[in-house]
Amino acid sequence: MAELVARNLTRRFASGGGISDVSLSVATGEFMVLLGPSGCGKSTLLRLIAGLEQPDSGTIEFASGADADPERRAIAMVFQNFALYPHMTAFENIAFPLRLRRTRRDQIEARVAQAAETAGLKIELRRYPAQLSGGERQRVALARALVREPAVILMDEPLSSLDARLRGALRLELKEFQRRVQRTIVYVTHDQAEAFGLADRIAVMCDGRIEQVGSPEEIYQRPATAFVAGFVGSPPMNLFRARRTNQGESWMAEGISMPVPASSSAGDEITVGFRPIDIAVSGAPSLIAIPVEVEDSEFTGSGFLVRCRAGSIVVHALFEEKPERGERRTIFVDPADLHFFDSTSGHRIE
């Protein structure tokens, strides 16, 4: 069952940016991550769902009853900087949504204590935000979002203002949190590790549009567009253009010949991609051989990320041993690991 359905949402800004004709459905209890580079419109979409922005056109429906008034929607939000009220103690911060609803005092205390426990808050609640660490502020923000028992919790890059080590720890905690509270979460991030670690489904956004919605595995294994292919995965997929040969049976790029995808209706040009991790350094006859020259390499811990060049094409590959600069090598790719995209529309070709 869908907790919230956005239909054909458009919101443009005079200064540029925003989203165009975006539709998205989020299931009840689902952890949905909006992933994309900065300026792709993911925060705009989140703010539209929150009701902080009004769409130019399009609708958002909630299973809990559509209501234009954000204060009556069963939605809570955790802001990038947590937006804790600095003049209130942790307790007062968490209790604020309940006070506004004129909840009875004994009930407020019970519910704040419960929300604080669920959010993993083990501190003295009489302290002010200024006296708390980054991680503790984060948990106060979570508890405040949770205390009114919302159907949907929105999170706008809630980990991005924390330092790297804390970020990793809190990511695990967030996942645990989601398991405990069983609520629908829409989460915005530009960090794919965060997206892959947390999401049930990911919506990859670019330029105000949703490029693909799917599970992390789907997104990684079958990217729907060339943008998704190039954005997701670390190191990112190698992408280059290829032209149809005269016979029309294979595609050529810089002397490399590749088999035609089964149902190709594309024009004379196509975008081909393969992941660095799918490259082999020794070959079998069934593999595509690509002669390259090594340009540079960097140590990654488990091996070397090598930048090679095949004519005008730059290919990133993972080697186990460090290659010499300027060394000539041949790398091999299984045709099954190739991804094809329409060069004009960017859509995947099977």
């Binding site: 929150a50 009701g51 902080l52 954000p70 204060e71 009556r72 939605i75 809570a76 939000m77 802001f79 990038q80 900087n81 937006a83 009220y85 604020f96 949504p97 506004l100 609803r101 405040r144 009114r148």
Partner: peptide, 14 residues
């Protein structure tokens, strides 16, 4: 920060 007002608005404040 304006974010504080947005947070309060989402918390249900007039």
């Amino acid at each position: 920060p304006f974010e504080l007002e947005e947070a309060a608005w989402l918390d249900g404040a007039s």
